[in-house]
Amino acid sequence: MASPTSAAANPKNPQGVLEYAVVPGAAAPDAKTPGCPPASEAPRTKVRRASLLAGFVIVLVLLALASLAVGSKHIDLSTVLDALLHPDGSADHAIIRDSRVPRAILGVLAGTALGIAGALVQSMTRNALAEPGILGVNAGASLAIVIAVGTFGVNGFGGYVWFAFGGAVLATGAVYLVGMAGARSSDPVRLVLAGVALGAVLSGIGTALALVHPAAFDQLRAWTIGSLEGRSADVLAPLALAVLAGVVLAAFTGRSLNALALGDDTALALGYKVGRARVLILLAVTVLAGAATAAVGAISFLGLMAPHLARRFSGPDARWMLAFTAVLAPIILLLADVLGRVLIPGELEAGVVCAFVGAPVLVMLARRRKPVAV
């Protein structure tokens, strides 16, 4: 959608030609309109972005295959393909199908969920440093794990993963209720402040309880690092359903994110219901981040870095940014998981490697001459 702006207020436009501001995702003005780019640029841009996105999808597939071959026991790629297409029950085929395939699927699902959740949080709050943990997701999940292990005696990942998801959901809901209490409209600043405050309280309570219960502290420490190793394949189906639901919700928020980026007043003037849009975004973040965090642990850096990297290729349109993030985030997570298997003897958790790999990338993006606005 384009709206004319005053030419008299612009000293660079003494002829009085009307200028237009274009909202991403809205109908583009006619190519003959003064001050507007040629209409042929939009199709070329879409083709370029689609080509880049397809290229990243190919990279993701190749990296997933590499994750099936690399590990404590290296397996030839031909054996990997035979295990996927013509399994014969051999030891190598069993390792690939029973251990590494679920692990690769988990990396793709969790990476996609954490990346999209981070992109939604950054766009909703218009804060380039925001990530899902800022809404209390990690703190709520960690407190629930401590309660499950220390109070109810739950042991093993398969037992406390459901507590972690419930804690993440309840914490995010509490953040929204506290942030919106007494407010006439949803305010991202209030949400961030409520999330930071409530997250600090929940983290303090969880740490105190964990110190009282040594077994809970050990479980919490293993979960907090963030890893794809040792996760049960039983969580794949629930995680896939949660990610599917969250992606569908995120897809419906694309145009709203474009409008919210211009400010609440402009979004209201364009006919968007800001409060309902933020509730829908927060619901998508809760489902995506809660499920992924419960499944793989607190890999918070991924939700911060992947959206920044995606904006280099997507431009200002939030819909393209979400699409690129959905592919780039699992690439980063799988790459960190593969590197963790080969960097040191044994295995280094993906959450640790993700920070080592992502920090230089984020520093490089921050030092660019033309930073991309959220």
Rank of each mutant, 00 (worst) to 15 (best):
T5R: 14
S6E: 05
A8G: 11
A9Q: 09
P11R: 07
G16A: 10
E19M: 10
E19K: 12
Y20E: 07
G25C: 14
K32R: 10
P43K: 07
R44H: 03
R48F: 05
R48C: 04
R48V: 02
L52E: 00
I58L: 14
V59W: 05
L60F: 00
L62I: 03
L62C: 09
A69R: 07
I75F: 10
D76T: 11
D76I: 13
S78Y: 03
V80T: 02
D82L: 08
D82E: 14
A83F: 07
A94K: 00
I96A: 05
V101R: 06
I105F: 14
G107F: 14
V108M: 09
L114W: 13
G118K: 00
A119E: 05
L120C: 11
Q122T: 08
Q122A: 14
S123Q: 06
T125R: 06
R126Y: 01
E131I: 11
G133A: 04
L135F: 15
V137D: 11
A139K: 13
A139D: 14
A141E: 11
S142P: 03
L143K: 08
L143S: 09
N155L: 05
Y160F: 15
F163L: 10
F165D: 03
G167Y: 13
G167P: 12
G167V: 10
V169W: 08
A171S: 15
G173Y: 02
M180V: 04
M180P: 00
A181Y: 14
V189L: 09
L191P: 06
L193F: 03
A194R: 01
G195C: 08
A208E: 01
L211S: 11
V212Y: 11
S227T: 15
S227F: 04
R231Y: 05
A233T: 05
V243I: 12
A250Q: 01
L257R: 03
N258K: 06
N258Q: 04
A261Y: 03
D264H: 06
D265W: 00
K273M: 00
I281T: 12
T286R: 08
L288F: 04
A291Y: 00
T293W: 00
S300Y: 00
F301M: 04
F313G: 07
G315D: 13
M321N: 13
L322G: 03
F324K: 00
V327R: 06
V327M: 08
A329F: 01
P330E: 11
I332Q: 14
V338G: 05
V338R: 01
L339R: 00
G340M: 08
E347H: 08
F356Y: 07
G358K: 01
M364D: 10
L365Q: 02
L365H: 00
V372G: 01
A373W: 07
V374H: 13
V374E: 07
